[in-house]
Write a protein that binds this DNA or RNA. Structure first.
Lengths: 227, 227
DNA sequence: CCTACCGATCGGTAGG
DNA sequence: CCTACCGATCGGTAGG
């Protein structure tokens, strides 16, 4: 700009007149710092997923969280750290859900039943409610720096570790064919790619759309040999 | 900027002294417009794949093609049109390769052999030499406008159309299980996701890395039932 | 295709 | 967390 726009960040006139210290008062709960941080995180996750990291400005995120443009930087050092936080929160939540899903299985659950639980939970994490975080992790890897990538990779490895014994058992049992390392990557590919095309069965349903149970069933049919 | 940088686009001093009309003369072949356009396209594909669309500036692309910053706009109306051109060129080439691969099959090739040819060709298109175009198409969809998306979708549908009868035949034959529409999407997911992790067997091979034949073999093992 | 720019937007910050 | 702002970069263009 040749001369910085003088009304760049002026608040609405209604707010500036009786000098209400910037913003309407929030309740104690809303003003809690951790809470506001969480709102920034949620807004960032949603925008990063919808438009991508680079196409989401920190101003967009601030606005979506009901803040002024500079305020996200009170909670996060920079935009990249916000991205890393979205990914970390996504993985933390995903690992927790996965542990819960596995713990809910009956004692002597078969490898097949275990895989069904893992796949179903994975679809929930990718496509269910509050599912913006993990897709961001899957599709915005490149924006992390080396240190951040290491930290997130550790979480991702922890998440995937639960799959290894299940896939190994199925392979040993003849229900899953092919080099297990490559098979695991391809299975995750088939599952993760749903983010690109899946649309939940909403109100405007011309044809019947697939549910997450449908996806799970189809995936198991596709991958596993014996019934 | 408060005052536009005055040396913003100055050429190197060596070029400015005896006034050689900006640039060293190119040979007739290099000066051909279609050729230069192709160089822009190739540079854009490579950068869009490596860094993503938004993270690749038109200046980066110009520089990679040996041009000044404004020159890509002589060949393409804007950056988005350049992206669409990358995708179109990718699909044009992919469809041509696929037709060639199918035509090379023996007369009575089985559905299994046909699938192997399709999968192997798909890996070539995704991961082989000159494979920047299709990954860009897969991962930069969101940057297209509605009209561009329609045009590219038509090409993508044409490419995928060749798979449908093969998958249908395998399903009818009991070699492929699950709802064919969902199965097709999951198969493409498993294949397309390789872009995220596959690294070709290069010089620095600690362990032996998978070849495209390995990937093809594993994919068929994973998806198909009977031997 | 280069030169020489422009207007807009963006990430980020000092100070309160 | 808001105010008011900065420096940098970016897509794009007129004219040659």
């Amino acid at each position: 700009m040749t001369s910085a726009s003088p009304v760049d960040e002026m608040p609405p006139a209604a707010l500036v007149r009786p000098r209400p210290r910037g913003r309407p008062r929030k309740t104690a709960e809303e003003r809690d710092d951790g809470n506001r941080r969480r709102e920034v995180l949620d807004a960032a996750a949603r925008l990063f997923r919808q438009r991508g990291f680079d196409a989401s400005s920190t101003r967009d995120i601030a606005s979506a969280a009901g803040m002024r443009s500079g305020s996200p930087f009170y909670h996060f050092e920079n935009k990249q750290a916000l991205l890393a936080a979205v990914m970390q929160e996504g993985m933390r939540s995903a690992i927790q859900r996965q542990n819960t899903a596995l713990a809910a299985l009956p004692e002597g659950a078969s490898p097949r039943e275990r895989l069904a639980a893992l796949v179903r939970n994975h679809f929930e994490v990718l496509l269910g409610p509050d599912s913006d975080f993990i897709p961001v992790m899957l599709y915005e890897w490149r924006r992390l720096d080396a240190d951040q990538a290491v930290a997130i990779t550790a979480l991702k490895d922890a998440y995937e570790a639960a799959w290894v014994p299940v896939l190994t058992a199925l392979h040993a049992d003849g229900q899953l064919a092919g080099d297990p390392a490559l098979v695991r990557l391809m299975v995750f590919g088939a599952l993760n790619w749903t983010v690109q095309w899946y649309q939940p069965p909403g109100a405007g349903k011309r044809r019947r759309r697939a549910t997450l149970d449908d996806l799970t069933h189809t995936a198991l049919q596709l991958f596993l040999k014996a019934a």
